[in-house]
Computed example of a mutant assay.
Amino acid sequence: MQRKAKHIPVYDICALQDNSGSLHDDLIIEPFGAYLKRHPHLTVPHRHSFYHMLLFTKGKGMHTIDFEQFPVAKGQIYFMAPGQVHSWQFEGETDGFVLNFSEHFLSSFLKNDRYTDQFTFLDGIAANAVLQLKGQVYEETKALMGKILEEAEQKQPLAMDVIRICLLQLFITVSRSEGSPHIQQSQQHNIVTLRNFRRLVEQHFATLKLPKDYAAMLYITPNHLNALCKDQLGKQAGEIIRDRILLEAKRLLVNRDMQIASIAYDLNFTDNSYFTKFFKKLTGITPEQFRKAIMDHNSKS
């Protein structure tokens, strides 16, 4: 259910299920038009505690993931990881397929619980999460969504396993459409190291803010970590850490009831002044100005 805590509203998967008796507590699959009618409040910024994906079959307008805006279009699919913030501003009738699933839904089925790490659209980075499907790829993806919906509605034996297989097939189909190059054996270790670095940043960004802290946990030197980040991501390790702190600050600022001094405290800044300087240096505006801009935008939506 919705939690009215000090942070932006967070929805658990059970809060979004209908009353018809769900096939599984860890899964929701539904035509998006019906889903949107049942949950009109989801147009305002909020978070999920589960994975969320949506394939548009019609619609116009904009949607926002972690404060990056994307235009809605037929054939677009987006993926969101738990904790990301998003909102919608649609124009006219919008439809498609929405699928929500818990972190446990696939991990309980796969022998390798890191299998889905290879799909960059699930990594929680907005720029990687929104894809435009065309032609046969769009038709195949739409058909897979339809098959998942059919299995969920009919509730046949082993339906959950069929759904999991279809979902993995969907991931592979979308990933192949992006033309991801084959990773050479010599590069695999570096990619695993970077994934572990991002995972550690996600866990510790509020308390560990220096590359050397993460390098120590990865058993590499800070220079090596910086070189990997620069080569693969185009940024220094310190930038990756600062970007994650900034993103969390923006997420917290969406809640108008949370004092900025409290946000600074939650993110382990020594005082509100230091937090404001940090935020303005990276964005060009103060936390107060950012919050006002978000509130003004939401009031016009």
Rank of each mutant, 00 (worst) to 15 (best):
K4Y: 08
I8C: 08
D12Q: 12
C14E: 13
D18T: 15
I28Y: 05
R38F: 06
P40D: 02
H46T: 02
H48M: 02
S49P: 01
F50C: 10
M53K: 03
F56V: 03
F56L: 01
G61M: 09
E68C: 05
A73L: 02
G75T: 12
V85C: 04
W88H: 09
F90N: 07
E93F: 01
G96N: 12
G96D: 11
F97D: 04
S102N: 13
H104I: 05
F109D: 14
D117N: 15
D117W: 10
Q136M: 11
E139L: 05
E139P: 02
E150F: 13
A159M: 05
I163L: 13
I165L: 12
L168F: 05
V174H: 03
Q187G: 01
H189W: 09
V192T: 13
R199G: 01
E202D: 15
H204Q: 12
M217A: 04
P222A: 03
C229T: 12
K230R: 10
G234F: 05
A237P: 08
A237V: 05
E239S: 04
R242S: 15
L252V: 04
M258V: 15
I260D: 08
S262I: 04
Y265V: 02
D266H: 12
D271T: 06
T276G: 10
F279I: 02
P287E: 03
Q289V: 12
Q289I: 02
R291Y: 12
A293G: 00
